[in-house]
């Protein structure tokens, strides 16, 4: 197992590989990667494989944005192939009150 080439994501339609990735995209494996972006994020997606398909059980994203406390989002099961990418952007959580 292992990666033949970097897993890519897109920010605002611009495609980039992850930095400092570990793990893999083989069956039962967990892939982890990160990237520092110096721009506004209007859209953020995880790009599917160049060929074949990935059946992803769960995607967990930690965001650390300026002027916003760090937050996380977890996305559920999704299948990706060479024609698809999946949204991984989630707006910061809104303030909530216990009422």
């Amino acid at each position: 197992m292992g990666l033949a080439e970097p897993v890519h994501f897109t920010i605002n339609g611009h495609k980039l590989p992850f930095d400092d990735f570990k793990g893999g995209t083989g069956a039962g494996e967990t892939f982890e990667g990160e990237f520092e972006i110096r721009s506004f994020a209007h859209s953020l997606t995880l790009v599917g494989p160049e060929s074949g398909s990935w059946k992803i059980r769960k995607i967990h994203v930690d965001y650390d944005c300026e002027n916003t406390p760090p937050y996380s989002a977890t996305f559920g099961e999704v299948a990706l192939d060479e024609t698809t990418e999946v949204n991984i952007w989630q707006d910061p959580p809104l303030p909530t009150w216990d009422v």
Binding site: G2, L3, A4, E5, V7, F9, I11, F18, G23, G24, T25, G26, A27, G28, E29, T30, F31, E32, G33, E34, F35, E36, I37, R38, S39, F40, A41, L44, L46, P49, E50, S51, G52, S53, W54, K55, I56, R57, K58, I59, H60, V61, D62, Y63, D64, C65, E66, N67, P70, E77, I88
Partner: peptide, 23 residues
């Protein structure tokens, strides 16, 4: 504004062997 995608982790299912490595 600096926007940092700190970490992403994706857990790939082992229920099917349909996963192919990127070419």
């Amino acid at each position: 504004m600096t926007s940092i995608l700190k970490t992403l982790s994706a857990l790939f299912s082992d229920s099917k062997s349909e996963i192919n490595m990127p070419s």
